[in-house]
Computed example of a mutant assay.
Amino acid sequence: MKILIVFYSTYGHVHQMAEAVAEGIREIKGAEAVMRRVPETLPEAVLEKMGAVEAQQRMSHVPICSVDELASADAVIFGTPTRFGNMCGQMRQFLDATGGLWAQGALVGKVGSVFTSSATQHGGQESTILSFHISLLHHGFVIVGLPYAFQGQMRIDEITGGSPYGASTIAGGSGERMPSPNELDAARFQGKHVAAIASKLKA
């Protein structure tokens, strides 16, 4: 059973969450976690001005995803930073290229899930995931979130991401905060949960 993790990460926060998602997937017998990045759309000069080149280089070992790979997966877990309460432009451009898959109904019945990051605690984590779900529903995905069985999202002793819609992390205004142990636990739980449901649907 192949679970595809398709993500975009500017400074490495979403990448770190994706690694945790993959760890969770591997806890389910027979589940293979396959990590892929969506293509970058920003010129290197812009990434350099943003201070993102080093982080991009650290992710360079992760292959770029092709649209056709989505059809070969049993489930797809998408990871995106939030941009004004929506997915980032790189992810939007990638999904906009999936019209051929939509026409074929190639993704109908597959499990789909989303995780995200934002600069601030209330910077659009929930709206990013919920608005992402619209694209997944148009493709016929069976949407899976992060149930309250993961009780880490109930914590009030620390600032943390995570909601019933999916795992998330708070990056800070300058990207200075990396995912916390609780946020990484949420990502692992989501990966395992998606793989478990995909396994049941495949049976």
Rank of each mutant, 00 (worst) to 15 (best):
Q121F: 08
F84I: 14
T116Q: 03
E19S: 08
A119H: 03
P43F: 09
V76G: 00
S66G: 15
E23W: 01
A20L: 01
A106Q: 12
G112Q: 06
A52G: 02
K49E: 12
P43A: 03
G51W: 01
T10R: 14
M17V: 10
R26D: 00
E32S: 04
K49D: 09
A31R: 07
G99P: 04
Q121T: 11
Y8F: 11
S66P: 06
G89Q: 10
A31E: 02
L95D: 08
A33H: 00
G124T: 03
L70A: 01
M91C: 04
T41W: 06
E19Q: 13
E48I: 13
Q57M: 12
Q104N: 09
G112L: 06
G112F: 01
Q90W: 05
D68L: 05
L101F: 14
R37D: 07
G79H: 02
P81K: 06
M35L: 15
A18Q: 00
P39A: 09
I28T: 06
W102I: 10
E40H: 09
R58P: 11
L107R: 09
M91L: 12
Q16N: 12
A119T: 01
S9T: 07
I77K: 10
G99N: 14
K29A: 15
R92W: 07
F115P: 02
I64R: 05
A45H: 12
Q90D: 11
E48K: 15
A71C: 10
W102Q: 14
E23D: 07
S113W: 03
A45G: 09
G79P: 07
V38H: 04
V53Y: 01
Q93T: 12
S66T: 14
A55H: 02
Y11A: 15
T80W: 09
M50V: 12
G99M: 13
S60M: 06
G51C: 06
G30L: 01
Y11G: 13
L101C: 15
M87T: 09
V108R: 03
A106M: 09
A55V: 10
M17W: 11
Q90A: 15
A33K: 00
N86C: 11
A33P: 00
A18N: 02
G89K: 11
Q125I: 05
C88T: 06
A20K: 00
E32A: 11
S113K: 05
G51R: 10
P39D: 06
R36D: 04
V114E: 00
M91T: 11
G85P: 01
V38W: 05
R58D: 08
M35F: 04
D68H: 12
A73Y: 06
L107A: 07
I28S: 03
T80D: 07
I77Q: 09
I64S: 10
L101K: 14
M17K: 10
